[in-house]
Simulated scan of single mutants.
Amino acid sequence: MTLKRDSWLVRGVLILAVAAFVAVPVLFAFNGRSSSQQANPSQTQTAADQATKLQGQIDGYTAVLEREPENETALIGLIEAKIALGDLEGTVEPLERLANLRPETPEYAIALAQTKQQLGDLEGAAQVYRRVLTQTPGSVPALEGLVALLISQERSEAAIGLLQDTLTTADQTNELTPGSIDKLSVKLLLGQVYVEQQNYDQALKIYDEAIADAQSATPTQPDFRPTLAKALVLQEQGKTTEATALFDQALALTPTQYKDGVQQLIDEKTGATPTAPSPSGDAAGESPDEAEAPAAE
Results as ranks from 00 to 15, higher is better:
residue 190 L to V: 06
residue 215 Q to Y: 12
residue 214 A to D: 11
residue 215 Q to E: 15
residue 211 I to S: 12
residue 217 A to M: 13
residue 206 I to V: 14
residue 268 E to G: 00
residue 246 L to F: 08
residue 256 T to P: 10
residue 246 L to S: 10
residue 220 T to A: 15
residue 232 L to C: 03
residue 266 I to C: 00
residue 214 A to P: 13
residue 220 T to Y: 15
residue 200 Y to W: 11
residue 221 Q to E: 15
residue 225 R to I: 05
residue 227 T to P: 00
residue 200 Y to T: 01
residue 206 I to S: 03
residue 248 D to G: 11
residue 187 K to G: 06
residue 261 G to R: 09
residue 196 E to A: 11
residue 214 A to R: 12
residue 264 Q to H: 04
residue 265 L to R: 07
residue 178 P to M: 06
residue 223 D to Q: 04
residue 242 E to P: 11
residue 230 K to F: 01
residue 211 I to F: 13
residue 224 F to Y: 10
residue 226 P to L: 01
residue 196 E to Y: 06
residue 246 L to K: 06
residue 240 T to N: 14
residue 271 G to K: 01
residue 236 E to C: 02
residue 208 D to G: 12
residue 228 L to C: 05
residue 227 T to K: 02
residue 249 Q to K: 12
residue 184 L to M: 06
residue 193 V to N: 05
residue 209 E to M: 10
residue 218 T to M: 10
residue 264 Q to F: 05
residue 219 P to A: 11
residue 218 T to P: 05
residue 269 K to S: 00
residue 204 L to T: 03
residue 262 V to L: 09
residue 246 L to W: 08
residue 244 T to A: 13
residue 265 L to D: 04
residue 198 Q to R: 14
residue 187 K to T: 01
residue 249 Q to P: 03
residue 265 L to Y: 01
residue 230 K to R: 07
residue 257 Q to W: 14
residue 212 A to W: 04
residue 259 K to Q: 15
residue 213 D to G: 14
residue 263 Q to C: 09
residue 262 V to W: 04
residue 217 A to F: 13
residue 180 S to T: 08
residue 185 S to D: 08
residue 187 K to Y: 02
residue 234 L to K: 03
residue 190 L to H: 05
residue 227 T to N: 00
residue 195 V to Y: 04
residue 251 L to F: 07
residue 207 Y to H: 09
residue 184 L to R: 06
residue 245 A to S: 15
residue 209 E to R: 10
residue 204 L to D: 03
residue 244 T to V: 07
residue 243 A to P: 07
residue 189 L to H: 02
residue 195 V to W: 03
residue 194 Y to L: 04
residue 197 Q to E: 11
residue 210 A to N: 12
residue 234 L to H: 00
residue 257 Q to S: 15
residue 222 P to W: 13
residue 252 A to P: 12
residue 217 A to Q: 15
residue 219 P to G: 10
residue 216 S to A: 15
residue 223 D to T: 02
residue 181 I to E: 00
residue 259 K to Y: 12
residue 260 D to N: 14
residue 224 F to E: 05
residue 243 A to E: 07
residue 234 L to V: 01
residue 229 A to R: 00
residue 207 Y to K: 08
residue 208 D to W: 09
residue 264 Q to R: 10
residue 223 D to E: 08
residue 233 V to H: 06
residue 235 Q to E: 07
residue 255 P to K: 09
residue 188 L to A: 02
residue 203 A to Q: 00
residue 249 Q to L: 08
residue 224 F to C: 05
residue 185 S to L: 09
residue 234 L to I: 01
residue 265 L to Q: 03
residue 242 E to K: 12
residue 239 K to Y: 09
residue 223 D to S: 06
residue 212 A to F: 08
residue 252 A to I: 10
residue 230 K to N: 01
residue 244 T to P: 04
residue 193 V to I: 10
residue 179 G to E: 11
residue 187 K to M: 10
residue 205 K to P: 05
residue 260 D to I: 10
residue 265 L to H: 02
residue 254 T to R: 03
residue 264 Q to D: 06
residue 255 P to R: 10
residue 222 P to C: 12
residue 223 D to R: 05
residue 248 D to F: 07
residue 183 K to R: 13
residue 221 Q to N: 15
residue 267 D to K: 06
residue 247 F to K: 10
residue 268 E to F: 02
residue 198 Q to H: 14
residue 253 L to F: 12
residue 263 Q to H: 07
residue 264 Q to G: 03
residue 269 K to Q: 03
residue 181 I to T: 04
residue 196 E to F: 05
residue 212 A to V: 11
residue 191 G to H: 07
residue 208 D to Y: 11
residue 219 P to I: 10
